[in-house]
Design a binder for these strands. Structure first.
Lengths: 166, 166
DNA sequence: GTCCATGCAAACCTTTTGCACTATA
DNA sequence: TATAGTGCAAAAGGTTTGCATGGAC
């Protein structure tokens, strides 16, 4: 099976990168790249495994983890932790490379957005603490418009909140 | 051993909370609360275990996890993931309850700070996407002033970055 | 032909759970 | 004394590693 057409040039960038590093361009590495560059979703390792197998390729999980490590090091792919107990991966080509995520607690939908306030926050860290930022991680959790309009309610953990009365 | 004086009233808040919920106020729960409310550090479960034992109390890890769950539900304590592979915990009393973290990749020092830009970012999520935020998580990674001045260098992952040349 | 990648299974680490026993109220 | 908590050990779940085999160049 062939990868989505849009993904092909990005997979080529990865292949070129591998050759530049003197690393073999293997069938499995390309299969993982096909999947990751072929979508704008934020994929888990299990999802990547399933899609590679759906394409007719056999692959082991260890190879997926090792290939993702290469992709993240190359900075062609970003790794995220949305607090689910596992990591998710998204490619950084054909989209705004720097963006943050709105994560819906009702339906798990992830919306990408960018705020220029983030620059100010980093500037503030420099001005106030002499801190030199190299990267930041921002996730906003809540309800997406659809869930909000559908009246979805988030469980309130079920317990009272003493901090408000302190 | 007695807990730090400053921690005592906060531990009392937790004890009152437990009674209000109809839950037993046990030695172990109070010992964990003593440790967590007795510092402004961001403690791992291992650190909490060590400090409880240093105070002369015996405790199992399962009890620490179960007590931290209560503390987080009560909102007296916040749980954080700084990407280390385990969680850290900090109390939310006697400090700005809402704050974010600057995490030094050189010495692991954590600096708390607050930026009013965060409010604007949440407003932007509402205005732009109709997203209703309930909480957000922001961590800025980089070098603290001391490490920066000491000339600490961060490893660059060792590989070239093809994305800049795409 | 050399070197590295792959697949599998085992190991690892943090966190959760089951269960017999103990402490709280 | 009834109810819920504790400790221990086992389980769970995601990720990493060791090693013999197989593929890339």
């Amino acid at each position: 099976m062939t990868p989505p057409v849009a993904a092909v040039p990005f997979v080529r960038v990865f292949a070129r990168y591998l050759r530049e590093q003197g690393l073999p361009v293997t069938h499995q590495r390309i299969a993982v790249a096909d999947v990751v560059f072929g979508t704008d979703e934020h994929l888990s390792v299990d999802q990547i495994e399933g899609r590679v197998r759906d394409q007719g390729d056999r692959i082991g999980k260890a190879t997926i983890y090792r290939t993702l490590d290469l992709l993240v090091r190359s900075r062609l792919v970003a790794e995220h932790d949305f607090g689910e107990g596992f990591k998710r991966y998204e490619h950084r080509l054909s989209r705004q490379p720097e963006h943050e995520h709105l994560i819906c607690l009702g339906c798990d939908k992830v919306t990408e957005f960018h705020s220029r306030e983030l620059k100010k926050i980093q500037d503030q860290a420099v001005a106030e603490f002499g801190f030199q930022p190299t990267r930041l991680s921002l996730e906003v959790y809540g309800l997406c418009a659809a869930c909000h309009e559908a009246g979805v309610e988030l469980p309130d953990y079920g317990l009272t909140c003493p901090i408000d009365s302190v």
